[in-house]
Each structure stands twice: as structure tokens, then as C-alpha cells.
């Protein structure tokens, strides 16, 4: 099973004039669960956004399912969960309406058939949100928003899931639901690329971790068996008090 589903070779990208990716190689094979780790600003979000074509690439090659990304059209095979804190837009929308957007790639000209409606319902069941189907997303908690966004990605029955920080701002109960959903998807043969700030509750699922630092791949291998995230190679452990380290504090509170 070494068929690459995602393949990046020597990918470079700039935001403005600042290089964010400086020649990244990354391969995700079929059935693999790969976590993309790194500190804020290491380029992990830019890397996944270059895969889906949201960030223009200045050099290198990107392939999805063996097809150069520019010619890739089979988007129903990809489920994408963008980095969001909310599923809401400027107008009220129900959970079903949001999740239905994820099914569009399987429809012809956006006409929904019975099977499409069933798929949307099924995606909601997978994330435990079926009972909220008719509710406005405005009435949901942060974790529920994330579950809706994941249901939207699952609605097209994708083979590849790309998730950008799916656990950010998610309460414990929703984290467990998300971990379980992902486990079921992986058991069913899905390939997953996850951007994570820390391994967290998804750790047992992850086959391989790729750590980025300053737009370069620092580590590509088994997920670091760690005492927490501190043991990650290249982990920039940024605390709120980090700024104070620059100047000595003599408040006497801690010393």
C-alpha cells in the first residue's frame, strides 16, 4: 500500500514577499493518517492550503491521487475541513443547509436526489449532530460548529480527509466525538492529513508525523513518543510568559 494520495515535491510558497514554504517534500500514502505539526508560523496551514489550491505555489509539484493538482477535478474524493471557529455566515443557516454544501461535488448542477439527502443525514449521524439538523448554526457551541464542518467534509463520502486544526477551540465532549468519527473513517480506509498544534486525543490514530519549522520539514517519521508535546523535535514552546523572558523579572513573586 504505497500508492501516494498526496504528494508534494520541493514546494515553495510566499505570502507577500515572505517565504512561508521553502521546499517541502511530503507524501501521504493511501490509508495513512499523517499529522502535520509545528509552531505557529511554521507553514503547516500554508502547506495544506497549497494542496487544495488556496495558496499559489511558486515552485515544486503537487499531486492529488497521482494527478497534478492543476488538472485534478475529482474533488468529491477530497473532504476538507478549513480552520474555522464558526460555521456561520452573514445569514442564518441550518446545520443541514451547511452540510449540504459538502454534497454538491456529488450532484449534477446542484440538484439533490434522495441519495444525496440521505448522505447528508448520514454525515450528521457520524458526528452525532442528527438531532440538531434543523437548528440554526448560530445556536451551536464551538465544538458543535467544528462537528458541523467535519460533517460537511464527510458528506461527499471522501477517500481523503484534509483537516486544518480540527481540535482548535473544541470542548472535551466534542473532541471525543471527533476522535471517534475519525477512527471510524480510518477503519473504513480513509486517508487523512491533519494539521495539529499538538497530538492530543488523536495521538493513537496517527501513523506518521511531519514536523515543520520555518517552512522546512524538520522531522518525518513515527509520531514522537513524548511526554506531552514538549518532546517534539523543533517544538517552539511558546507560553504567554515567553515575552517576559527577554527581560529579567524581579517582582519577587516567583523567585
Amino acid at each position: 500500500m504505497t500508492e501516494p494520495v498526496i504528494s508534494l515535491r520541493g514546494v515553495r510558497a510566499e505570502l507577500g514577499s515572505r517565504p512561508v514554504l521553502r521546499g517541502i517534500d511530503l507524501t501521504v500514502n493511501r490509508g495513512e493518517v499523517v499529522a502535520l505539526l509545528g509552531a505557529n508560523g511554521s507553514g503547516k496551514s500554508t502547506a495544506v492550503r497549497s494542496v487544495i489550491g488556496q495558496v499559489p505555489v511558486s515552485a515544486g509539484e503537487i499531486e492529488l491521487f497521482g494527478t497534478p493538482r492543476a488538472r485534478f477535478r475529482d474533488w468529491a474524493r477530497v473532504g476538507y475541513v478549513p480552520q474555522r471557529t464558526t460555521a456561520a455566515g452573514g445569514v442564518p443557516a441550518t446545520v443541514t443547509e451547511i452540510v449540504s454544501s459538502g454534497r454538491l461535488s456529488r450532484t449534477r448542477f446542484g440538484v439533490f436526489r434522495k441519495a444525496d439527502r440521505a448522505a447528508v443525514r448520514h454525515a450528521l449521524e457520524l458526528v452525532g449532530m442528527a438531532d440538531r439538523a434543523k437548528d440554526s448554526v448560530d445556536a451551536l457551541s464551538g465544538g458543535q460548529h467544528q462537528r458541523v464542518l467535519i460533517a460537511r467534509a464527510l458528506a461527499s463520502d471522501p477517500e481523503l480527509l484534509i483537516m486544518d486544526e480540527p481540535m482548535a477551540g473544541v470542548d472535551l465532549a466534542s473532541q471525543e466525538v471527533l476522535a471517534r468519527t475519525l477512527r471510524e473513517q480510518v477503519a473504513a480506509g480513509a486517508t487523512v492529513l491533519l494539521v495539529l498544534h499538538e497530538l492530543g486525543p488523536l495521538e493513537p490514530l496517527i501513523d506518521r508525523a511531519v514536523v515543520l519549522r520555518d517552512g522546512c520539514v524538520l522531522h518525518d517519521g513515527p509520531p514522537p513518543k513524548a511526554v506531552g508535546q514538549h518532546a517534539l523535535p523543533g517544538h517552539d514552546h511558546v507560553h504567554p510568559h515567553a515575552a517576559h523572558d527577554a527581560e529579567p523579572i524581579r517582582t519577587g513573586l516567583l523567585s
Binding site: 487544495i52 455566515g89 454544501s101 461535488s105 450532484t107 446542484g110 461527499s156
Partner: peptide
């Protein structure tokens, strides 16, 4: 006629691109 497509694009442009719209 294009309400579903326009809804998807207006709701989340980035996601809409990944659905191939």
C-alpha cells in the same frame, strides 16, 4: 437556479473551491 452553489460560495469560499465549484 444556482442557490445551492451560490450559498456554498458565499458561505465559505475556501471550502467551495475544494468541492470543485
Amino acid at each position: 437556479g444556482l442557490r445551492r452553489q451560490l450559498f456554498a460560495v458565499s458561505q465559505d469560499e475556501e471550502f467551495a473551491r475544494v468541492t470543485g465549484l
